[in-house]
Design a protein around this nucleic acid. Sequence first.
RNA 1: GGGGGCGUGGCGAAGUUGGUUAUCGCGCCGGCCUGUCAAGCCGGAGAUCGCGGGUUCAAUCCCCGUCGCUCCCGCCA
Length: 618
Amino acid sequence: MQNCRCFDSIRSMESMKRSVTCGELRAADLEKEVILNGWVHRNRDHGGIQFINLRDRYGLTQVVIDQDAPELLRNAGAGLKPEYCIAVRGRVRARPDGMKNAEMLTGDIEVAASQIRVLSTSEVPPFVIDERSDAKDDLRLRYRYLDLRSFSMQRKIKLRHEVMLSVREYLSGEGFYEIETPSMIRSTPEGARDFLVPSRLHPRKFYALPQSPQLFKQLLMVSGFDRYFQLAHCFRDEDARGDRQPEHTQIDMEMSFVGRDDVFKVIEGLFSFVFGRCLNVQLETPFARISYHDAMNRYGSDKPDLRFGLELQDFAEFVPKAEFAVFQKVLESGGAVRVLKAESCGSYSRKQISDLEETAKIYGAGGLAWMKVTDEGLEGGISRFYEGVAAEIIAAYQAKPGDLLLFVGADWQTACTALGAVRSRLGNELSLIDSSLFRFAWIVDFPLFEWNEDEHGWDAAHHMFSMPQEQYLETMESNPGEVKGDLYDLVCNGFELASGSIRIHDPELQKRVFKIVGFSEEEAQRRFGFLLEAFRYGPPPHGGIAPGLDRLVMIMAGESSIREVIAFPKNAVAVSPMDGSPAEVDEQQLRDLGLRISSESAPAGGHGEGTDVSNSDA
RNA sequence: GGGGGCGUGGCGAAGUUGGUUAUCGCGCCGGCCUGUCAAGCCGGAGAUCGCGGGUUCAAUCCCCGUCGCUCCCGCCA
């Protein structure tokens, strides 16, 4: 009966249900008769004695089959392969002196097997299920259910669960209701492209999957719910990027009768609670506040990594004092020259500097100018232009021999962004980052409008329901570029963790914003007349924010991709290698929907699937 | 939409300035082994070097195309 190769050994487990998990036995449990259920992690057969590490989500327990065990049992043990799902009955005993394993929580004990039942066998898995599995992401996603068996993935999924649970606990305690909003809504003109869902009942019509519950949560404020949150799935049909998924999860929130600081206080309380509960980390509150302008100016990013300094500084005052035409022209055309002092990088080779320049160029810089600080003054790069003011420059930036000065001259935005990228790279290269830190900050005072070069008009920088700051209300039309909004981002360690705003609840002000971004009254009525209508019935002042759950958990888990904290993510091109989505559908399904695939939209290089659908229905 | 990188047994990699048995580790199979815990030792199987075309006496290597994956820029409030 214990011959695992016999089919009839795979049977009901009714008499072999676990009495303990694989993570809980300790020295205090000696002599207990236990039943374990789990997967064969490793099977070490020493000829006479066999050791089987049995794994479940709680841990590992060493099962032993002794030399003098019945032959039937020894044979069964010998046949156990990795990932077989088995049940083991046995007695807990102490490991001999010197054989204890301090690395294992259950390392003081072992279970001497008296009965083994194979619950199911396993083919040889495509990769070893182990902490240090070196399988590539593509393969891990193809067999995600196996990847998820590893302790490292189980830890991250557990952390995600605990974060979600503590978010609910905290917000509920603060008077927030969790309210679900529809997953099938009208397509509304927000930033990204919508995923569309064709309606069979209403041919030619489509639902859209929400990019966020934005309009609905504002309606809930009109309804008087006052404090709302939801762990909401959000869908965006945008081009894939490594840090992006077509669907992601937000901790979506909205509050009535609040200003910006009220929102900040709730979030600071929430994050403190979540980090304390899930990581036992105490966050310092209130979080720092940095204006968008300062963030760009000092760190070259609107989501700066504040775990290290290396701040950007201005070089404009020295430009007129030297005959370096490149920088002079930049300033004449209204641009900026920014400088970064890379301490002790004076030994960088031309190759290393040229690599840094490549980084700067990716973000639009024409080049990366440099000078080395030596005992004699400034050397190399563009230093010959600045010989006359070398001492002044060294003093102004408190540069020391061995330092490297790096410069980008361009329009302000480009200069900051490009040098900011160099800053980030140096932060990593020079190991300036303490990865155990969580450095939060609010980024505030974002511009409300952005100039769209292509369409030659103003766009809403965030979305068009965000409130302009009061001091700009008079001049909003005459100078849209100057208007700061009641917008805010929460950043942590170089990631944008949340984004939100105080909303416009005054229909007249809303109309003015629509007009500035070239959104006609008719268009507004057509696309979200329901929201505008609602605002005719006493809307409360309100505002909100939406932390990204995936990124939050990613940062807490110390990972660098949100794929690592999503149970079943898509890959970098928005495909699921496991279930094969997206995929073609049956002809009949298309017919029911009144849809036909046009051959123009068939995949390039056509393998035929796309065109088949089209032809068969033509 | 644009640019870079990668594709070699089940997995991860090495390799060839183009030369005939394609290497290593892990895994797998068989054997040995009484205390291991990434067990050890011995033996073995397993690869049309992503696919198609081209150059060449000869292509895994060079060229072109293509597919797949991946990173970055744009885009994504």
